[in-house]
Simulated scan of single mutants.
Amino acid sequence: MEALKREALEEIGFNLSIGEFIGKAEKHWVSPQYPDLSQHNIGYFYACTLAKKVAEPLETEPMRWVSLETIEKKLFHEHHLYMLKKTLY
């Protein structure tokens, strides 16, 4: 949970209020660039609410609301989209 709070602070400049644990999702794959190297990504998902803005974000692109359709095109890992849809529907 501390890593989640730290990343939010670094990336968007806000403290987070971390709510319930939504779930865990994993993806295994082999990259075409590195066919001898198996990849494994584990995601832990929590419902969060933005709390107080306490710093300027390190990211230069401003935070904004986007449609689910936009997210579907931008997310690299399918299991992230799966968990988002599981939460929304």
Rank of each mutant, 00 (worst) to 15 (best):
E59I: 12
P57A: 01
E20P: 07
N41F: 13
N41I: 10
T60W: 11
K53V: 05
Y89S: 15
H77T: 02
K27C: 04
G13V: 00
A25V: 04
R6M: 05
E61Q: 13
M83F: 01
H80A: 10
G23L: 00
I71G: 12
I22H: 01
F21S: 05
H28D: 02
L68W: 04
Y89W: 07
A3I: 11
K73I: 08
Y82F: 13
E2A: 13
A3Q: 12
E7K: 11
G43A: 10
L81Q: 04
E61W: 06
H79S: 11
L75P: 02
W65D: 12
T49Q: 15
I12V: 13
A25D: 14
E2P: 06
K52G: 04
H79M: 11
L88I: 02
L88P: 00
K52H: 12
L75A: 11
P32Y: 01
S31N: 07
H40Q: 09
R6Q: 14
F45D: 07
H80E: 15
N41V: 13
M1A: 12
Q39H: 12
W65G: 03
I12N: 00
I18H: 00
K85E: 09
E59S: 15
S31Y: 01
K85R: 13
E10N: 11
G43W: 09
Y34L: 11
E11Y: 06
E10T: 06
R64V: 10
K73N: 10
L16M: 00
T49F: 10
S67D: 13
H28E: 03
I42W: 02
K27R: 08
G13Y: 02
R6A: 14
V54G: 03
I42G: 02
I18D: 00
T60N: 14
E59F: 12
L81K: 03
N15D: 08
I42L: 11
N15Y: 06
E56N: 15
